[in-house]
Simulated assay, not measured.
Amino acid sequence: MPAGAARRLAARERLPVWLQARCAVEPRTVAAVGVVLVAAVGFAGQQYWSARPREVTAPALTAPAPAAPAVVPAGATASAGPPAGAGGGAGPAPIVVDIGGKVREPGVRRLPAGSRVEDALAAAGGVRPGTDTTGLNRARVLVDGEQVLVGVDATDRPQPGGAVPGGPPAGPLSLGSATVEQLDGLPGVGPVLARHIVDFRTARGGFRSVEELRQVNGIGERRFAELRPLVRP
Protein backbone atom coordinates (compact mmCIF):
# COMPACT_ATOMS: atom_id res chain seq x y z
CA MET A 1 0.00 0.00 0.00
CA PRO A 2 1.45 3.37 -0.83
CA ALA A 3 2.56 5.52 2.02
CA GLY A 4 0.01 8.26 1.28
CA ALA A 5 -2.93 5.87 1.29
CA ALA A 6 -1.72 4.29 4.50
CA ARG A 7 -1.55 7.64 6.21
CA ARG A 8 -5.11 8.55 5.09
CA LEU A 9 -6.42 5.22 6.33
CA ALA A 10 -4.70 5.67 9.67
CA ALA A 11 -6.07 9.18 10.03
CA ARG A 12 -9.63 8.04 9.25
CA GLU A 13 -9.49 5.29 11.84
CA ARG A 14 -8.72 7.86 14.50
CA LEU A 15 -11.93 9.80 13.66
CA PRO A 16 -15.30 9.11 15.39
CA VAL A 17 -17.52 6.43 13.92
CA TRP A 18 -20.22 8.86 12.66
CA LEU A 19 -17.60 10.97 10.96
CA GLN A 20 -16.00 7.89 9.44
CA ALA A 21 -19.42 6.93 7.98
CA ARG A 22 -19.86 10.37 6.37
CA CYS A 23 -16.33 10.42 5.01
CA ALA A 24 -16.71 6.91 3.63
CA VAL A 25 -19.06 8.09 0.87
CA GLU A 26 -17.47 7.53 -2.48
CA PRO A 27 -17.41 10.22 -5.19
CA ARG A 28 -19.68 8.16 -7.46
CA THR A 29 -22.33 8.09 -4.77
CA VAL A 30 -22.10 11.84 -4.36
CA ALA A 31 -22.44 12.30 -8.12
CA ALA A 32 -25.50 10.04 -8.24
CA VAL A 33 -27.13 11.93 -5.39
CA GLY A 34 -26.38 15.20 -7.17
CA VAL A 35 -28.00 13.97 -10.37
CA VAL A 36 -31.13 12.92 -8.46
CA LEU A 37 -31.35 16.31 -6.75
CA VAL A 38 -30.94 18.16 -10.05
CA ALA A 39 -33.66 16.01 -11.63
CA ALA A 40 -36.00 16.64 -8.68
CA VAL A 41 -35.43 20.39 -8.86
CA GLY A 42 -36.04 20.36 -12.62
CA PHE A 43 -39.28 18.38 -12.24
CA ALA A 44 -40.51 20.74 -9.51
CA GLY A 45 -39.70 23.75 -11.69
CA GLN A 46 -41.59 22.24 -14.63
CA GLN A 47 -44.68 21.63 -12.48
CA TYR A 48 -44.57 25.17 -11.14
CA TRP A 49 -44.22 26.63 -14.63
CA SER A 50 -47.10 24.62 -16.06
CA ALA A 51 -49.40 25.51 -13.12
CA ARG A 52 -48.85 29.27 -13.35
CA PRO A 53 -51.95 31.45 -14.28
CA ARG A 54 -52.18 32.29 -17.97
CA GLU A 55 -54.01 35.06 -19.82
CA VAL A 56 -56.95 33.76 -21.87
CA THR A 57 -57.98 35.70 -24.97
CA ALA A 58 -61.66 35.50 -26.03
CA PRO A 59 -62.27 34.59 -29.66
CA ALA A 60 -63.24 37.48 -31.92
CA LEU A 61 -66.94 37.74 -32.82
CA THR A 62 -67.81 37.66 -36.48
CA ALA A 63 -71.04 39.09 -37.91
CA PRO A 64 -73.28 36.56 -39.69
CA ALA A 65 -73.27 36.75 -43.42
CA PRO A 66 -76.37 38.45 -44.93
CA ALA A 67 -78.99 36.08 -46.24
CA ALA A 68 -79.16 35.78 -49.95
CA PRO A 69 -82.36 37.13 -51.55
CA ALA A 70 -84.92 34.54 -52.52
CA VAL A 71 -84.90 33.66 -56.16
CA VAL A 72 -88.31 33.62 -57.83
CA PRO A 73 -88.50 31.18 -60.72
CA ALA A 74 -89.24 32.60 -64.13
CA GLY A 75 -92.97 32.89 -64.77
CA ALA A 76 -93.87 32.79 -61.08
CA THR A 77 -95.28 35.83 -59.31
CA ALA A 78 -94.76 36.57 -55.64
CA SER A 79 -97.92 36.61 -53.58
CA ALA A 80 -98.78 40.12 -52.54
CA GLY A 81 -100.25 40.87 -49.13
CA PRO A 82 -103.37 42.93 -48.56
CA PRO A 83 -103.03 46.60 -49.54
CA ALA A 84 -101.98 48.94 -46.77
CA GLY A 85 -104.85 50.62 -45.00
CA ALA A 86 -107.41 48.03 -46.13
CA GLY A 87 -109.99 47.71 -43.37
CA GLY A 88 -111.74 44.58 -42.22
CA GLY A 89 -115.16 45.94 -43.24
CA ALA A 90 -117.20 49.06 -43.76
CA GLY A 91 -118.64 50.81 -40.72
CA PRO A 92 -122.37 51.28 -40.09
CA ALA A 93 -124.17 53.41 -42.63
CA PRO A 94 -125.12 56.95 -41.57
CA ILE A 95 -128.73 57.87 -40.84
CA VAL A 96 -130.83 60.66 -42.34
CA VAL A 97 -133.16 62.64 -40.07
CA ASP A 98 -135.50 65.58 -40.62
CA ILE A 99 -135.06 68.28 -37.98
CA GLY A 100 -137.83 70.87 -37.81
CA GLY A 101 -139.60 73.22 -35.48
CA LYS A 102 -137.90 75.97 -33.50
CA VAL A 103 -134.28 75.32 -34.41
CA ARG A 104 -131.86 77.74 -36.04
CA GLU A 105 -131.29 75.72 -39.24
CA PRO A 106 -134.12 73.23 -39.84
CA GLY A 107 -133.76 70.66 -42.58
CA VAL A 108 -132.57 67.17 -43.42
CA ARG A 109 -129.28 66.14 -41.85
CA ARG A 110 -127.03 63.12 -42.34
CA LEU A 111 -125.67 61.89 -39.00
CA PRO A 112 -123.50 58.95 -37.91
CA ALA A 113 -125.29 55.79 -36.84
CA GLY A 114 -126.05 55.80 -33.13
CA SER A 115 -126.52 59.58 -32.95
CA ARG A 116 -128.94 61.01 -30.39
CA VAL A 117 -131.44 63.86 -30.38
CA GLU A 118 -128.80 66.14 -28.87
CA ASP A 119 -126.57 65.50 -31.91
CA ALA A 120 -129.43 66.35 -34.25
CA LEU A 121 -130.08 69.63 -32.44
CA ALA A 122 -126.41 70.54 -32.70
CA ALA A 123 -126.44 69.76 -36.44
CA ALA A 124 -129.41 72.13 -36.84
CA GLY A 125 -127.59 74.99 -35.13
CA GLY A 126 -129.23 74.51 -31.75
CA VAL A 127 -132.63 75.41 -30.31
CA ARG A 128 -133.91 78.95 -30.68
CA PRO A 129 -133.86 81.06 -27.49
CA GLY A 130 -137.01 80.83 -25.43
CA THR A 131 -138.14 77.50 -26.89
CA ASP A 132 -139.88 75.16 -24.47
CA THR A 133 -138.14 71.77 -24.71
CA THR A 134 -140.10 70.09 -21.93
CA GLY A 135 -140.73 66.47 -22.82
CA LEU A 136 -137.91 66.39 -25.39
CA ASN A 137 -135.62 63.46 -24.64
CA ARG A 138 -132.21 64.66 -25.80
CA ALA A 139 -130.57 61.31 -24.97
CA ARG A 140 -132.84 59.25 -27.22
CA VAL A 141 -131.12 57.30 -30.01
CA LEU A 142 -132.22 58.35 -33.48
CA VAL A 143 -133.26 55.98 -36.26
CA ASP A 144 -132.96 56.41 -40.00
CA GLY A 145 -135.77 58.44 -41.56
CA GLU A 146 -136.93 59.96 -38.28
CA GLN A 147 -138.39 63.45 -37.90
CA VAL A 148 -137.46 65.54 -34.85
CA LEU A 149 -139.80 68.47 -34.12
CA VAL A 150 -138.77 70.97 -31.45
CA GLY A 151 -141.17 73.32 -29.69
CA VAL A 152 -144.16 72.45 -31.89
CA ASP A 153 -147.62 72.39 -30.28
CA ALA A 154 -149.72 69.27 -30.46
CA THR A 155 -152.17 71.01 -32.80
CA ASP A 156 -149.36 71.80 -35.24
CA ARG A 157 -147.88 68.31 -35.31
CA PRO A 158 -148.72 65.77 -38.04
CA GLN A 159 -151.86 63.76 -37.40
CA PRO A 160 -151.70 60.11 -36.25
CA GLY A 161 -150.45 57.83 -38.96
CA GLY A 162 -148.32 60.62 -40.42
CA ALA A 163 -151.25 62.20 -42.29
CA VAL A 164 -151.50 65.91 -42.86
CA PRO A 165 -154.94 67.44 -42.19
CA GLY A 166 -156.84 67.62 -45.43
CA GLY A 167 -154.23 65.57 -47.30
CA PRO A 168 -153.45 61.94 -48.05
CA PRO A 169 -151.71 59.71 -45.47
CA ALA A 170 -147.99 60.35 -45.39
CA GLY A 171 -147.01 56.87 -44.17
CA PRO A 172 -146.61 54.88 -40.94
CA LEU A 173 -146.23 56.76 -37.67
CA SER A 174 -142.72 56.80 -36.21
CA LEU A 175 -142.60 55.13 -32.79
CA GLY A 176 -139.33 56.94 -32.13
CA SER A 177 -140.75 60.48 -32.37
CA ALA A 178 -144.54 60.21 -32.01
CA THR A 179 -146.15 62.08 -29.13
CA VAL A 180 -148.76 60.77 -26.73
CA GLU A 181 -151.45 62.62 -28.71
CA GLN A 182 -150.34 61.03 -31.99
CA LEU A 183 -150.23 57.55 -30.50
CA ASP A 184 -153.64 58.11 -28.91
CA GLY A 185 -155.09 58.51 -32.41
CA LEU A 186 -154.07 55.01 -33.48
CA PRO A 187 -156.84 52.38 -33.52
CA GLY A 188 -157.13 50.56 -30.20
CA VAL A 189 -154.66 52.90 -28.44
CA GLY A 190 -155.94 55.18 -25.70
CA PRO A 191 -154.17 57.78 -23.55
CA VAL A 192 -152.97 55.19 -21.03
CA LEU A 193 -151.49 52.83 -23.62
CA ALA A 194 -149.98 55.76 -25.50
CA ARG A 195 -148.23 56.82 -22.29
CA HIS A 196 -146.94 53.24 -21.83
CA ILE A 197 -145.45 53.33 -25.33
CA VAL A 198 -143.69 56.65 -24.66
CA ASP A 199 -142.38 55.43 -21.29
CA PHE A 200 -141.06 52.25 -22.91
CA ARG A 201 -139.37 54.31 -25.62
CA THR A 202 -137.73 56.59 -23.05
CA ALA A 203 -136.46 53.68 -20.96
CA ARG A 204 -135.02 51.82 -23.96
CA GLY A 205 -133.67 54.85 -25.80
CA GLY A 206 -136.01 54.38 -28.76
CA PHE A 207 -137.49 51.60 -30.88
CA ARG A 208 -135.06 49.63 -33.01
CA SER A 209 -137.81 47.55 -34.61
CA VAL A 210 -141.60 47.40 -34.68
CA GLU A 211 -141.39 43.97 -33.01
CA GLU A 212 -140.35 45.67 -29.75
CA LEU A 213 -143.90 47.01 -29.53
CA ARG A 214 -144.92 43.54 -28.28
CA GLN A 215 -142.99 44.23 -25.06
CA VAL A 216 -145.12 47.25 -24.13
CA ASN A 217 -147.54 46.59 -21.30
CA GLY A 218 -151.09 46.37 -22.69
CA ILE A 219 -150.27 45.30 -26.27
CA GLY A 220 -151.22 41.73 -27.11
CA GLU A 221 -150.89 39.79 -30.33
CA ARG A 222 -154.24 40.98 -31.71
CA ARG A 223 -153.56 44.65 -31.06
CA PHE A 224 -150.01 44.33 -32.36
CA ALA A 225 -151.36 42.86 -35.61
CA GLU A 226 -153.60 45.94 -36.00
CA LEU A 227 -150.82 48.43 -35.25
CA ARG A 228 -148.00 46.80 -37.20
CA PRO A 229 -148.85 48.26 -40.65
CA LEU A 230 -149.51 51.70 -39.14
CA VAL A 231 -146.18 52.30 -37.36
CA ARG A 232 -142.45 52.17 -37.98
CA PRO A 233 -139.40 52.30 -35.64
Rank of each mutant, 00 (worst) to 15 (best):
218 G>K: 14
195 R>I: 00
96 V>Y: 11
205 G>M: 09
193 L>C: 10
24 A>H: 10
217 N>R: 14
149 L>G: 08
151 G>K: 13
77 T>V: 05
7 R>Q: 11
94 P>M: 01
32 A>R: 15
216 V>Y: 11
114 G>I: 01
73 P>G: 09
133 T>G: 03
64 P>D: 00
230 L>V: 03
157 R>V: 00
135 G>T: 03
137 N>R: 15
36 V>W: 14
82 P>Y: 02
10 A>C: 09
155 T>Y: 10
137 N>E: 11
119 D>F: 13
154 A>C: 09
157 R>N: 04
33 V>T: 00
131 T>G: 08
205 G>V: 13
219 I>H: 04
94 P>E: 00
136 L>M: 06
146 E>Q: 15
209 S>T: 13
217 N>T: 02
214 R>K: 15
26 E>C: 08
31 A>F: 09
63 A>K: 12
222 R>M: 07
39 A>I: 00
27 P>K: 08
79 S>R: 12
213 L>Q: 11
134 T>R: 15
19 L>I: 11
126 G>H: 14
179 T>R: 13
228 R>G: 01
26 E>F: 03
174 S>F: 11
153 D>G: 11
10 A>W: 15
154 A>F: 08
144 D>C: 03
87 G>T: 05
168 P>E: 01
200 F>E: 06
96 V>D: 03
57 T>R: 14
26 E>R: 15
117 V>W: 06
12 R>C: 07
130 G>E: 04
175 L>A: 06
64 P>E: 04
73 P>Y: 03
114 G>N: 13
191 P>G: 08
127 V>M: 04
8 R>E: 02
182 Q>W: 13
37 L>T: 04
138 R>Y: 12
197 I>E: 00
184 D>I: 01
161 G>P: 11
189 V>W: 08
42 G>F: 09
32 A>W: 12
10 A>Q: 14
87 G>F: 13
55 E>T: 05
56 V>D: 05
231 V>G: 04
183 L>A: 05
187 P>E: 01
34 G>H: 03
218 G>H: 08
79 S>A: 10
148 V>P: 04
73 P>R: 10
57 T>G: 01
115 S>E: 06
139 A>H: 14
101 G>E: 10
214 R>S: 02
34 G>R: 11
142 L>Y: 11
178 A>W: 12
6 A>P: 05
